[in-house]
């Protein structure tokens, strides 16, 4: 069961409300550079949306996330396709992708700084390097989960390659692709702020660095919230898309 975006679950409200209250409570006992009061954070948060320059910073980060994910997704589709086509390709690609997946984001940052000159190429490289393996594996998994029965049934009509893809393969892998986007969006949002430390002169990561230098906790939290809210909204949009595309699926009336 998914709840519509405007109808928050009671538990969600209580959990987040509780955290907000606890923070506000702490702000009475600690100096504002450690625990700034909630209204101060909210004010900074709203200010970001009212200031065109700040909005441009947030927009830059969003654009970097989408650009990185889009390139990683296309590469992932290609790699998944190659791996799905032959077991031999898979045996070569699997250890390589697994290895790449094991490299920490910070190492990619260092490598990107050494390899690339401009800020944007560096960030794009980091974003792609940190998400491409997961995309490949998730799309390959979705492809492999295709039912052999349905595959043979469709084949029995002798479809063209294109028709086979359109009528069977695409509908099979779309749910997995959407899930991959949701998962990788979360990862990308975490990585992008680190990537933006490599000399970006704009973006949420850059703003966070500014707040750190000013020792402005309220500002740092406000920018963090912008990123988190962005991720949640996009994930919600993908969930809506999923619900719409997968409306044919039966729903179990009870779970254990």
């Amino acid at each position: 069961m998914t709840t519509p975006w405007y109808k928050l679950r009671k538990e969600t409200v209580l959990a987040l409300g509780g955290l907000t209250l606890a923070w506000q409570f702490a702000s009475y006992f600690f100096p504002p550079y450690l625990f700034p009061p909630v209204p101060a954070i909210a004010q900074k948060f709203l200010a970001i949306f009212l200031d065109p320059e700040s909005l441009a910073n947030a927009g830059a980060t969003a654009a970097r996330i989408f650009a990185g994910l889009a390139v990683a997704f296309l590469l992932g589709v290609l790699l998944a396709f190659l791996m799905g086509r032959s077991e031999r390709n898979y045996r070569y690609a699997y250890p390589l992708l697994n290895f790449i997946q094991g490299i920490p984001a910070l190492s990619w940052v260092v490598i990107a700084i050494i390899w690339f000159k401009g800020t944007e190429p560096r960030i794009l490289f980091i974003m792609v390097a940190t998400t491409v393996a997961a995309f490949s594996f998730q799309i390959l998994d979705a492809y492999r989960s295709m039912s052999k029965d349905l595959f043979e049934m469709t084949l029995s009509f002798r479809p063209s390659k294109r028709d086979l893809f359109r009528t069977l393969i695409l509908p099979t892998i779309v749910p997995g692709m959407l899930t991959a986007w949701k998962v990788n969006l979360g990862n990308a949002a975490r990585v992008v702020v680190v990537a933006e430390l490599v000399g970006a002169t704009g973006g949420i990561g850059y703003q966070l660095l500014q707040q750190q230098q000013l020792f402005d906790m309220a500002g740092a939290l406000a920018w963090t919230l912008v990123l988190v809210v962005f991720v949640l909204i996009v994930q919600q949009v993908i969930t809506k898309l999923e619900d719409w595309l997968l409306a044919y699926r039966p729903r179990a009336e009870r779970s254990t």
């Binding site: 029965d149 349905l150 049934m153 009509f157 009528t167 044919y248 699926r249």
Partner: peptide, 22 residues
């Protein structure tokens, strides 16, 4: 086939159309 093997994302009509569509 021995089991019905219908595409779950197509309606009854869409499933019957599959062969002729291909």
């Amino acid at each position: 086939f021995q089991n019905d093997r219908l595409l779950p994302w197509r309606t009854a009509l869409g499933n019957v159309e599959l062969g002729i569509e291909l």
